[in-house]
């Protein structure tokens, strides 16, 4: 089983002005294959740093990350990334973008074509095969990004604010697509978001992170993602259970922001 284990990861670095920033302090967790974790937190809580460490773009100052019992160093095609936007290759068509990973590995052309056709079908873009990506809407571009990531068949999918740039309606549709892909592919997914609602709805597990030093403040196990596969997302989001969780988390983050503001003001004096 390809479990993802993050063991006592810390990240401390010096800024050019000489201050020390503790971006992450002793963060530990593990995800079984097929689990969906969403991470929420105010800016500066180290969630992007954590994501970059798991992706292999940053080396932690202490601790280690391992996938399927192998310690990770640097990026690799076992961990796919989906970014907020602008990470597609505009010089390539929709199909070429999706087939980028397999092409880099030297997969035979017919096989790439088959994979790409299949994936475009899954994300509902089969009619856009040869279209240039810059002609697609924001939501469609993110569908391409999802398909591109899946084409490599990674064990873990890391999503950094994948739906952050989309309008509210498209965003809801895409949330359902993410859930659908999660169920159908059985991938482990870590998703960073700024939206409490999105984190609650999509996360089987949910971490709320706190800043200074960056750490996991609260962990939740949630039933909504599982329910979202069969029930109407609108109804789930309107349920009393969902709303009370949302208010709980919102007020927690609200308090954190107040605290940060207080610290800044004190530092200012």
């Amino acid at each position: 089983m390809s479990d993802l284990v993050v063991n006592n990861v810390s990240m401390v670095f010096d800024t050019p002005s000489g201050d020390q920033v503790e971006a992450l302090q002793n963060v530990s967790f593990s995800l079984k294959q097929g689990e969906l974790l969403s991470i929420l937190g105010p800016s500066g809580c180290g969630k992007s740093t954590l994501m970059n460490i798991v992706a292999g773009f940053l080396a932690p100052t202490a601790g280690k990350v391992s996938l399927a019992s192998t310690e990770l160093h640097g990026p690799g095609s076992d961990r796919g990334m989906v970014f907020q936007q602008g990470a597609l290759f505009e010089w390539l068509s929709v199909a070429e973008n999706v087939g980028f990973g397999p092409m880099m590995k030297g997969t035979p052309k017919e096989q790439i074509k088959k994979t790409v056709t299949e994936l475009l079908q899954i994300v509902g873009l089969q009619d856009f095969y040869d279209k240039p990506v810059y002609e697609l809407s924001g939501g469609m571009q993110q569908r391409v990004a999802l398909a591109r990531c899946l084409a490599n068949d990674p064990d873990v999918i890391l999503m950094d604010e994948p739906l952050g740039a989309l309008d509210a309606l498209t965003r809801e549709k895409m949330q359902s697509l993410v859930l659908k892909l999660w169920k159908e592919t059985g991938k482990t997914i870590i998703l960073i978001t700024h939206s409490v609602e999105e984190a609650l709805f999509l996360g089987e597990k949910l971490f709320v992170m706190a800043p200074r030093p960056g750490r996991i403040k609260q962990q939740y196990e949630l039933p909504f993602a599982e329910a979202g596969l069969v029930e109407d997302p609108r109804e789930i989001k309107a349920s009393t259970e969902f709303i009370s969780k949302r208010e709980e988390i919102l007020s927690m983050i609200w308090d954190m922001e107040e605290e940060i503001m207080g610290q800044v003001e004190m530092a200012g004096d």
Binding site: G76, R79, G86, F100, R148
Partner: peptide, 29 residues
């Protein structure tokens, strides 16, 4: 070149040479 493009390419399994030829070069055209 946007960093996210470079990161995307690496995590799609591209080598340094492939990143240069398939991302940096076309992106700077």
């Amino acid at each position: 070149v946007k960093l996210s493009k470079i990161h995307a390419a690496y995590s799609l399994g591209a080598s340094k040479k492939q990143v240069l030829l398939h991302v940096i070069l076309p992106n700077s055209l």
